[in-house]
Design a protein around this nucleic acid. Structure first.
Length: 152
DNA sequence: GCCAACGTTGGC
DNA sequence: GCCAACGTTGGC
């Protein structure tokens, strides 16, 4: 099983929103590297750290899981969507997504500051300077370590 | 709201 | 194929 981290702005879609909905199509990803992780890397049952970005205390707030295979992101075909992509077509979809299901909310947020303070996590892609990927892999060891921090 | 970092676009 | 301009991300 592979492990992942996905960023979301809580003002737009928070882990509480995911909890309420149960599962959600992860639409709107318009970065090729992130798309490739979803399309080629993710398998049903893979676990995901849910990360809140662009907010007061950015950090990992809980766990989600992959609940579908990758399929074309419908929003790319919708002219009324802000994610519409005129360069894509149903015959050759450019953007893929997976459905993400709620698993648990951590008892506390593992803040970005705390993650940065752990020498064990220095190689995490999340902590690399200038990284803006919204979907990225998490090494098995880092997954275990962070779960330990969360008391989960 | 600022701005550094980085991806994409498009002229040439 | 180069690279300047532009847009976006996301921490602060």
């Amino acid at each position: 099983m592979n492990h992942w981290l996905m960023k979301s702005e809580p003002d737009v879609f928070s882990i509480d929103d995911l909890k309420t909905r149960g599962k959600e199509p992860w639409d709107g990803v318009r970065n090729y590297q992130a798309r490739n992780f979803m399309r080629d890397g993710m398998r049903i049952g893979d676990r995901i750290f849910f990360y809140h970005s662009n907010c007061k205390v950015p950090g990992i707030v809980g766990i989600a899981e992959v609940v579908s295979e990758a399929y074309p992101d419908p929003s790319q075909f919708d002219p009324d969507s802000k994610y519409f992509d005129a360069g894509s077509s149903r015959a050759a979809p450019r953007w893929m997504l997976v459905d993400v299901g709620y698993v648990q909310t951590f008892p506390r947020t593992i803040s970005l500051d705390e993650l940065k303070s752990c020498p064990q996590l220095a190689d995490m892609p999340l902590l690399r300077k200038g990284n803006r990927l919204s979907v990225m892999p998490v090494a098995a060891g880092d997954w275990q370590f962070i779960n330990g921090l969360a008391g989960a």
